[in-house]
Simulated assay, not measured.
Amino acid sequence: MTETVSFGYEDVAPAEKTARVRGVFSNVAARYDLMNDAMSAGMHRLWKDRFVRRVKPRAGEQILDMAGGTGDIAFRLAESGASITVADINPEMLAVGVDRAAKRGIDGLVWTEANAETLTFPDRFFDGYTIAFGIRNVTDIPAALREAHRVLRRGGRFYCLEFSTTLWPGFAEIYDAYSHRLVPKLGKLLANDEDSYRYLIESIRRFPDMPTFERMIGEAGFVQTAVEPMLGGLVAIHSGWKI
């Protein structure tokens, strides 16, 4: 692992990034879903629906939803009858998810605090691994991808939903101006936290582009890797299989 990693537009020591990311999500946990609606005009719900359709969860499967604290993906996956383990490094995010599940009457989910880079689950334990809008916040992304590969059974599938870089002419400039100028202000207005939302936008800019991230997934051992861009690549579904 390199001596420094990106935290937004800053380069910091790996341990510092882990601590600072934990702080960001502790700060925003209570308003995280409200801000997702505000930042995406509600489109994140459609993206997540499409993501889960690609995963195709089935009754009886064991699926790990990593960085899934608030439960948005897990609730959708659970409708299939699959057994879902929700893992997140941040206990405040998990607390929000547990509370939301209770209010919705959703039982049977397993909630666990875990670091994506050093999972404690045994080898070849899960049929599926999902991570939505979380991989870019991981300190050592290649380590997290290797762990995803390790805990999947042969024939298991990896799916990642993440922001990327849109290739639509003109739209990239409009979105860039919107995200840098307005999203931190929305964070200040709705969550009283401008700095955390500035980091979240900056982290998107520092994340690898679609071909680079697809290559990283392959380097972790996955095969038949694929990427499905949405809005020209503003958001993308990455996938791979373990054989």
Results as ranks from 00 to 15, higher is better:
residue 198 R to T: 13
residue 14 P to S: 12
residue 81 G to C: 09
residue 223 V to N: 09
residue 179 S to P: 07
residue 143 A to C: 04
residue 145 L to N: 03
residue 68 G to S: 14
residue 76 R to K: 13
residue 148 A to G: 01
residue 78 A to T: 10
residue 112 T to L: 08
residue 36 N to T: 05
residue 140 D to G: 10
residue 114 A to W: 03
residue 38 A to K: 09
residue 203 S to C: 06
residue 195 D to A: 15
residue 194 E to C: 10
residue 183 V to I: 15
residue 241 W to F: 03
residue 185 K to Y: 06
residue 130 T to P: 01
residue 144 A to Y: 00
residue 200 L to G: 05
residue 9 Y to P: 06
residue 240 G to A: 11
residue 5 V to Q: 01
residue 189 L to Q: 13
residue 126 F to Q: 12
residue 185 K to L: 11
residue 201 I to D: 10
residue 47 W to V: 02
residue 148 A to S: 01
residue 218 G to I: 03
residue 29 A to V: 07
residue 48 K to C: 05
residue 106 I to G: 00
residue 135 I to S: 14
residue 189 L to K: 14
residue 12 V to K: 03
residue 26 S to K: 05
residue 141 I to T: 15
residue 73 I to R: 07
residue 29 A to H: 02
residue 138 V to C: 04
residue 228 E to K: 08
residue 228 E to S: 07
residue 196 S to T: 02
residue 240 G to S: 12
residue 217 I to D: 05
residue 192 N to G: 13
residue 214 E to Q: 09
residue 59 A to G: 07
residue 218 G to R: 04
residue 242 K to Y: 00
residue 242 K to C: 02
residue 118 T to R: 13
residue 51 F to C: 04
residue 199 Y to C: 04
residue 116 A to G: 03
residue 95 A to V: 01
residue 60 G to Q: 11
residue 26 S to I: 06
residue 107 D to V: 15
residue 7 F to Q: 15
residue 21 V to T: 08
residue 10 E to G: 03
residue 26 S to T: 12
residue 76 R to Q: 14
residue 24 V to I: 15
residue 38 A to H: 02
residue 3 E to P: 01
residue 28 V to N: 00
residue 210 M to E: 14
residue 14 P to Q: 12
residue 56 K to M: 12
residue 55 V to E: 14
residue 72 D to W: 01
residue 154 R to G: 08
residue 226 A to H: 08
residue 182 L to T: 10
residue 71 G to D: 14
residue 126 F to G: 12
residue 224 Q to P: 00
residue 68 G to Q: 05
residue 77 L to A: 09
residue 228 E to N: 05
residue 231 L to K: 10
residue 114 A to Q: 15
residue 199 Y to A: 03
residue 208 P to W: 05
residue 201 I to G: 04
residue 7 F to P: 06
residue 71 G to T: 13
residue 82 A to H: 01
residue 182 L to I: 15
residue 52 V to Y: 00
residue 19 A to F: 00
residue 151 V to Q: 13
residue 163 F to H: 11
residue 88 D to V: 04
residue 125 F to K: 06
residue 159 Y to V: 11
residue 220 A to N: 01
residue 139 T to V: 13
